[in-house]
Simulated scan of single mutants.
Amino acid sequence: MPIDAALALAAAPRSGEISWTPGDVQLYHLGIGAGADPGKADPATDPDELRYTLESRLHVLPSFATVAGGGPPGVIRALSVPGVDVGLARVLHAGQDLTTHRPVPASGTATATSRVTAVYDRGEAAVLVLRTEVTDAEGPLWTEDARVFVRGEGGRGGGRGPVSRPDPPVGVPDRTVERPVRPDQALLYRLSGDLNPLHADPEFARLAGFDRPVLHGLCTYGITLKAVVDTLLGGDVGRVRGYGARFTGVVYPGDTLRVRMWRGEDRVRVVVDAAGRGATVLTGTVGHVRGRGRRVPGRYDEEGRSS
């Protein structure tokens, strides 16, 4: 059954309660490489890494919001919306935008409300945008948009949606770091709730068109944000107000990620390559990076630019 864009867009929002604990945060941080920084002599006990792994000094990386509650990620939740009836093997995660309205607490209970806000026709594929807004007793916590690329569902009419690309960063990066992806990285990361077999099952990966399982795009997303926070933001997770990224290529367990960063007045531009293969796998913007304790409201468009 093809995607029925009108039905998907008209579907009522779905709400549910989510909760998380410090242990969930620690597991997520381990899944994106905390405690394994190759630049540290003893990364497991390094003070800069312990803020991600030790409950007594826990700082929450904002990208934890994408897995908080332990349920399936937006790319899978979108497939249960009325009017969307496609097989998981035809789906890829195209990008993710996140705006944090307050720092993400180390434990909490909140209400998450999701709805499809856009369906674009890209010719060879359709792109769905699933927006999730999360609120607790004190008010809004974060808003995230998952962009879902569905192969073979384009060409049915409708607008293409935003297709402009920001100009690539120019000049020498302010910082470049490399982060190795462990052979078991996807197996560890999926324990935070993303059980898509694409990232673990070789037979399913071949069915989806890959010769072996690939790393979760959101794992690359988290690895990249941690690299920016650790190298350009002094480890201060509170300075991140928004983060938008496009997934432009696949990462395989065992790859080495090269993260290049360009610092701007209020944001950091990033480009991530699979260093050994010369493939660009992520482009994005960590935005609203300001002085400590200053809060800057705003949202991000599809390309990660503040609006």
Rank of each mutant, 00 (worst) to 15 (best):
F204S: 12
D48Y: 09
V104F: 10
A274K: 10
E178P: 02
T248C: 07
A12C: 00
M261Y: 11
V281C: 14
R246F: 00
D4F: 04
R102W: 00
L257V: 09
V296Y: 02
A41Q: 13
H59F: 10
R14P: 00
Y252A: 06
P2K: 08
F210D: 11
G152H: 09
A279Q: 14
V228R: 05
A11F: 01
D167N: 05
A118P: 01
T283P: 05
R263N: 03
A186T: 05
G23L: 04
A65N: 08
E17F: 00
C219D: 10
D4L: 06
A118W: 00
G278L: 11
L225G: 08
D301C: 05
D255R: 01
V129G: 00
G244L: 11
R260M: 07
R147L: 11
G193Q: 11
P297V: 07
A137T: 14
G23Q: 03
V134D: 05
A65T: 12
P168M: 09
R277E: 09
R292H: 15
S15Q: 03
V150R: 10
V148D: 04
G293P: 12
Y252G: 00
Q96Y: 02
G242C: 03
V251T: 15
H29K: 07
E302H: 10
R122T: 00
P173Q: 10
L50D: 04
R190G: 00
R305H: 09
V170P: 01
R277K: 06
R90Y: 02
S63T: 15
A44W: 05
E144D: 15
D85K: 09
T176W: 02
P103C: 07
V271Y: 00
D273F: 14
P105K: 08
V228I: 07
L215T: 07
G70A: 09
T135C: 09
T176L: 03
E153L: 02
T143E: 14
A68P: 13
G16N: 03
G222S: 02
D42I: 02
Y189L: 12
D301Y: 02
I18G: 01
V134L: 08
V129P: 04
V84C: 12
P105C: 06
V25G: 01
D121C: 12
P166D: 04
R182N: 06
H216A: 04
L225V: 11
E17P: 00
G209Q: 04
C219R: 01
P73I: 14
V119Y: 06
E303F: 03
S164I: 03
R147V: 01
R51E: 08
V148Q: 09
A44Q: 13
G287R: 10
P13T: 13
G278I: 04
H59R: 15
A118D: 12
V228S: 01
V60M: 15
Y300N: 01
L257E: 06
D46P: 11
Q185C: 05
Y28R: 02
V104P: 04
A200T: 13
D301M: 13
W142M: 08
A208R: 06
R206F: 02
L191W: 12
D255M: 01
H93L: 06
V116L: 06
D46F: 06
G69I: 12
T99F: 00
G139I: 13
P166M: 13
G161I: 08
L233D: 08
G298E: 08
L232V: 14
R160G: 15
A245K: 11
A208K: 07
R260L: 00
R295T: 15
R156E: 12
E124D: 09
E138S: 15
Y120K: 12
L98N: 08
V148K: 10
R260I: 01
S80C: 09
D230C: 12
V104R: 02
